[in-house]
Each structure stands twice: as C-alpha cells, then as structure tokens.
Amino acid sequence: MRRRPIFLISVLCFGFAFFYIPILSMIVYSFNGSRLATVWGGFSTKWYVSLFSNRQVGAALLLSLKIALISATMATILGTMAGIALARFRRFKGRLFFSGMVTAPLIMPDVITGISSLMLFILMAEWIGWPATRGFTTITLAHITFSMVYVTTIVQSRLISAERDIEEAAMDLGSKPWQVLWDITLPVIFPAILSGWLLAFTISLDEVVITSFTTGPGNTTLPLLIWSKVKLGVTPDINALATIIVLVVGIGVVIAGWLMNRAEKQRDRDARLAYRANE
C-alpha cells in the first residue's frame, strides 16, 4: 500500500525537475557576476541593469508587443468569423474541404509557412508594389495567417457545444440573424474569443521561424534578438531577459487562474443558493 504513493511522488518529482531545472538554472545564472555563462562569479544584478539600459532590447520588445497586439486582434476577428461560419452555417458545398483547409496550417511545419509567406510577399512587391519592404507589415500579416487558425478552432469548438436554442430564441423574439450574433452569440462565446486572443498573442510573441522568413533589415523582434545573440554564445543578459519573461508570464498565469477559480466558486455558490431557495 505504501509503495504506490512513493512511486507516484517520485514520478511527479522527476517530471517537475525535467520541466523546471533548466528554467531554474537560467534564473540562477541571470544573477551570475561572471561574464562566462558556465562559471559562477558571485551574485550580481548588473545584467539586469545593463539590460534596462540596452536600447536594442527595448526596441525589440516594443516591436514584438506591437506585432503581437495587432496580429492577435486581427486574427481574433477573422478567426471568430471563420469559426462561426464553420459551426453555424448549414451544410454548404465544400464545407468539409473548407474546414480541412482552415485547420491544415495547425500541422503545417513553420518553415513551409515561412517560405511560402516570403515567396508571396516577394511576388506581391514585384506585381503590385506592396509591401515595398519587408518588416513590421509583413511579419504582422504572416502572424495573422497562422494564429487565426487557433482562434477559429477554439471558437468553433465552443460554438458546437453551445446551445443552438438560445440563438433560435433570440430570433424567435424578433432579432434578425446579425442582431442575434451581436446580442447573444458573441457575448456567450466571449470567454472563448478571449482565450483565442491570448493564445494568438502568446504565439505571436515568441514566434521565431516564420518571423525570420518574413522580416526585413532593421526589424528585429525580441525572439529574433535573443536567437541572434545566443548564436554568439549564451550571455548572462539573455538569462536576465528570459527570467523577466518567465516572471511576467508566470504572474499572468497565476492571476488568470485565480480570477477563473473565483468566478467558478461564485457560480457554484449561486447555484447552491438557487437550489436551496427552490426547496
């Protein structure tokens, strides 16, 4: 009887160690006083100081955030529309083909998406003169293209499980389909849309492969900057940067989890109260 918990606990510890030792060692080494990544030179915060005075990092972060914000928002709008179309339209010709086409990019290797985006941008520049240079616009367009798929998938699965009844009820009460979409469907699936946006945002924020294909001179996003720096050897300021990112993401996850948990508890309490009132 006592063996199993021990086995389970050791598996759990091993799993956690597997995940977190690399991150922990990175965090520890970000406080390394030595210039060499492999030699411990005493505790120091100088890499954080140098990071904050580094304009290159600041510019890259800003560009990444800008691209992530715009591409996530656009991808959410387009992806939600596609998701609604796929979930709600009655059988139309080529529906299966269309839904297959929408989800295919999920399994498409990034390199292929990157190369094909690059080819398209080069051809477009040649034929219609736009986009003239590669950079912010082309990266954003490419990011919209692949992150839209995630939003579509999330929204579509939420709509399939949602009750069709409430949309019919709204229609029955005098609302035209577009009003139903605005009054009922979108508010009800809003959490799914929000999580789609968050997913698109995070994916865009740490995308390297497709970005490196579609970027142009002078447009370095944060992941690209880290990538290019690491090619010259892991320096402690990268560790510091990564530590900050881990911290920000970690805090975000904890807050989101706490909020969701609280909402759920509130819901449970309400349901119990309603049930008791009925007795």
Binding site: E163, D165, I166, E168, A169, A170, M171, D172, L173, G174, S175, K176, D183, I184, P187, V188
Partner: peptide
C-alpha cells in the same frame, strides 16, 4: 421567425445566460 407574431417557449427554456431575468424578459 423574427417576423412572425409567434413566440416559443423552448424545452430547455433557452434563457440568455449573460442577461438578468429582467433583461431576458425585455429582450423581445
């Protein structure tokens, strides 16, 4: 359906979950 003077009470009731009781009744 939105032009018919006919309203329906659904088996599942199909209340709008994001609206209060009052707003549900006022919707039409």
């Amino acid at each position: 359906p939105w032009e018919r003077p006919v309203h329906m009470m659904f088996q599942s009731y199909a209340l709008f979950p994001h609206m209060s009781v009052e707003k549900n009744v006022a919707y039409g």
